[in-house]
Nucleic acid binder design. Structure first.
Length: 491
RNA sequence: CGGGGUGUAGCGUAGUCCGGUUAUCGCGCCACAUUUGGGAUGUGGAGGUCGCAGGUUCGAAUCCUGCCACCCCGACCA
């Protein structure tokens, strides 16, 4: 009589929130729109960090750290940037509290401790980093600067959603400076490739690489490249962005260098980032009604071993077998836990680890083991296989690979069956209600995109980099177009 | 910030329209016993500012006023 703790309700958000909390990843904090990431959830983030960080180092980047507070005036320097972020900033105005007057209880800001200039809690660090870079660059020999920062940022969003849009979130932001436009664009694309590779090979999440339309572009960028993923409810999720900033920030912050030709020039910039939103993407890509489903490469725990026995002798026998399996798996760098707690029944443990998304469960039962058998269960499709105990090591190792691949293929085929070419406006109106991605021609104007968004809530998720040229007519205006773009409703 | 909804134990809830004994039930928690191959069973037990603050009343979870928080839909966004 397994009682399902997690139910996929009609309302996807409800299911999602339920899942996140029950799966012990995070909970809402007392602070509006912020979340507490619990140890198990944070362990996933640490894996993401470690893997990405290795990629960054391989591509020549270094980590650095910049202040959390940014003087307000910095934001005023890049016009589009201000407009993009001004509406959602947390602002520090005072540096001291004092007890309230008139015997009232509580504290208030001390008017004598008002800051000369307000400080903004960073919503992103372009401004303070470019202000700093000015002092680092004089000659072309100082370029490129390839820095990354792991940090928290704050955006005072009207509406927040666990993992996908919290008021405070963790992320990495890369900020690079280059001598030429070409080199900066190359960097932008290189980092997009890193993100796409990570999403597909590690998160087992297929993504479409593309460029944002002007409406969806980062505030202050010339071009915003992105990876877009499809969640299980057919909605799109922007999973990572890489921006070509041109010379916008260099001009705003006066970052110039003397070129080989002895000419004073502004540097070319990029910035790129992914956040704890990736964890939301991970959950929403693979999880099912039994809880989380984690790809082996990101699971904090890859294998769990559960003993079932009645007598001490049986327990002894199982322990011996477990030791052998554990030492093998550990030697292969596979994380494994032997859960021999007596306080919980086997059935309870089965459900617990399914909820947590542990990819493989090995059941060492006294009954089977006496016949030289063990049961290996996989989380991705919930099937079980009884195999000979002397094959379990190799089998488990291969199965992790198999699960990783299967999750990707499953998500990919889901995306494919929910991606359709749409050629007329009538068709668009019908199809957008079904969810998924619509590949449509678009006349390239912000007005059309705006109109479509207004009428259907769908936006252009990206203009795919790999899409082939094709003559056609804009799905809304009927004007000429030579490429299909991805329309979808998104998170 | 606009529209809608919800707030009762760690979680999920009944009761609110129509005020009236000790605030209902399930899960979870604690103790003991029997159990352990898909979230065990029995017995006993602990746990509550009924979101907060006022008001009406002999009496408020219930009625009135104000506030707060959360969720959903908009606007905004990684």
């Amino acid at each position: 009589m397994a009682k399902k703790l997690v139910k996929r309700s009609e309302n996807y958000s409800e299911w999602y929130n339920e899942l996140v909390v029950k799966a012990d990843l995070a909970e809402n904090s007392a602070v509006r729109g912020c979340m507490v990431i619990k140890p198990y959830g944070y362990a996933i983030w640490e894996k993401i960090q470690r893997i990405l960080d290795d990629f960054f180092k391989e591509t020549g980047h270094q980590n650095a750290y910049f202040p959390i507070f940014i003087p307000k005036s910095y934001f005023e320097k890049e016009a589009e940037h201000v407009e993009g972020f001004a509406k959602e900033c947390a602002v520090v105005t005072h540096h001291r509290l004092k007890p309230k007057e008139n015997n009232e209880k509580g504290l208030e800001c001390d008017p004598n401790a008002k800051l000369e200039e307000e400080l903004i809690v960073r919503p992103t660090s372009e401004t303070i980093i470019w202000d700093t870079y000015r002092g680092w660059v004089q000659s072309y020999r100082d370029l490129p600067i390839l820095c990354n920062q792991w940090a928290n940022v704050v955006r005072w969003e009207m509406r927040t959603r666990m993992f996908l849009r919290t008021a405070e979130f963790l992320w990495q932001e890369g900020h690079t400076a280059h001598a030429t436009s070409e080199e900066a664009i190359e960097e932008t694309k290189k980092m997009l490739d890193v993100y796409a590779h990570f999403a597909q090979k590690f998160m087992a999440m297929p993504v479409i690489k593309g460029v944002k339309s002007p409406n969806e572009r980062f505030a202050g960028a010339i071009d915003t490249y992105c990876i877009e993923a499809m969640m299980q409810d057919g909605k799109a999720l922007q999973a990572g962005t890489s921006h070509f900033l041109g010379q916008n920030f260099a001009r705003a912050f006066d970052v110039k260098f003397l070129s080989k030709e002895n000419k004073l020039e502004y540097v070319w910039a990029t910035s790129w980032g992914v956040s704890t939103r990736l964890m939301g993407a991970l959950i929403m890509s693979h999880s099912d009604d039994n809880g989380l489903v984690l790809p082996p490469k990101l699971a904090p725990l890859q294998v769990v071993i559960i003993p079932i026995y009645k007598t001490d002798e049986e327990f002894e026998m199982i322990n011996n077998e477990a030791d052998k399996i554990i030492s093998f798996l550990k030697s292969r760098g596979i994380s494994v836990k032997y859960d021999d707690r007596k306080e919980y029944s086997a059935g309870w443990k089965f459900n617990e680890y399914e909820l947590k998304g542990v990819p493989i469960r090995i059941t060492l039962g006294a009954r089977d083991l006496k016949e030289g058998l063990v049961e290996v269960a996989r989380r991705d499709n919930l099937t079980k296989e009884t195999i000979s105990v002397d094959k379990v090591n190799e089998y488990t190792e291969n199965l992790l690979e198999e699960i990783q691949k299967n999750l990707f293929n499953r998500a990919l085929s889901f995306r494919q069956t929910n991606t359709r070419k749409v050629n007329s406006w009538e068709e668009f109106l019908v199809e957008i209600e079904k969810g998924g991605f619509l590949l449509c021609h678009w006349d390239g104007t912000p007005e059309t995109e705006e109109k479509i968004k207004e009428l259907t809530k769908a936006t252009i998720r990206c203009i795919p980099l790999e899409g082939e040229e094709e003559e056609g007519k804009c799905v809304y205006s009927g004007k000429k177009s030579n490429k299909r773009v991805v329309f979808a409703r998104s998170y």
